[in-house]
Design a protein around this nucleic acid. Structure first.
Lengths: 153, 153
DNA sequence: TTTCATGTAACTTTAAATAATACGTGAAAT
DNA sequence: ATTTCACGTATTATTTAAAGTTACATGAAA
């Protein structure tokens, strides 16, 4: 399995956008994330459709956040990127005729469902404003002088 | 990401073994699991080292369970197969110096750690005996006549 | 001594995420 | 108007870990 890092990627990108007043280009965001501009457009595309960010073409264009950070939770972002799988484990067959497999799947499914519910509940409790505040707290605890010293690019 | 199904696979195999008195060969287990004998040996190898099963070579050889089903929990099995990742998401390590990324990772890690702890706690509460009982209950709720009608192979 | 069955290493295939390429659309600057 | 900038997206390639496969060695029983 290749671990999915879209959620952390999107959150990272959004917080970087939040530190700026002007639109940020996919190019600039990609550089900050050490990835490709197309990847940025793909993951932000879902957020645009959900109304969290706006994109503008042409000179001076780029991406801007459309809602107050306090009104966006990690759960919102998770939903907007298409609710990718949270659990790394599945089972071999979905509709098994084998009753042994049914018993095993039932036990695993129950546990995984509860763990997922816990995760989503946690996600819903964390807003981007809180993440931004955490970032600023980390910055204050450091000797460097400005925001620019703490973010890449 | 390719979902990991080793845990469900091992549990499945163990319950099948539990339904028999004689050793089961990797060949027979593989047929029941629709997979390859080598895969069976690989996943059972860890359990053998942990003392949950025993393997014997030669005529009449194969795999047998070494402990009472009530003394083996799903958590034991999870540990014995090497504690594979439970969560499908990781975070990018591209910019570890970035405080924004640190803030995001901290929030995600907290949630994921709690979800993993919940999962492992649940695993520790379920014994193979309970899974076997669930299997027999499912069998009793069905019109077919014998164990053989409900397990593959 | 032949056959059966596990023990393992090495290699191939597969699934999902990510990266890269190429080309299209629309907006602003000149 | 035309050029430049920046997003939109389809297509293809790369990467990673799991799963499958092959090959050969070891050891026990017939």
């Amino acid at each position: 399995m290749k671990r999915d890092s879209r959620l952390s990627g999107v959150l990272h990108v959004l917080l970087h956008m939040a530190e700026r007043r002007d639109p940020m280009t996919s190019e600039a965001l990609a550089q900050a994330m050490q990835t490709h501009p197309v990847v940025i457009r793909r993951i932000l595309g879902g957020l645009r459709d959900a109304g969290f960010v706006r994109s503008e073409k042409g000179h001076g264009g780029g991406w801007t956040i459309q809602r107050a950070l306090g009104d966006i939770t990690m759960r919102d972002i998770y939903d907007a990127i298409g609710r990718p799988a949270l659990m790394a484990m599945g089972h071999r067959t979905d509709a098994p005729g084998c009753l042994v497999e049914q018993a095993v799947n039932a036990a695993l499914d129950t546990s995984f469902r509860d763990a997922e519910a816990l995760l989503l509940a946690r996600f819903a409790q964390v807003t981007l404003a809180e993440l931004a505040a955490d970032f600023h707290a980390r910055m204050a605890a450091r000797p460097a002088t400005s925001v620019k010293d703490h973010i890449h690019g």
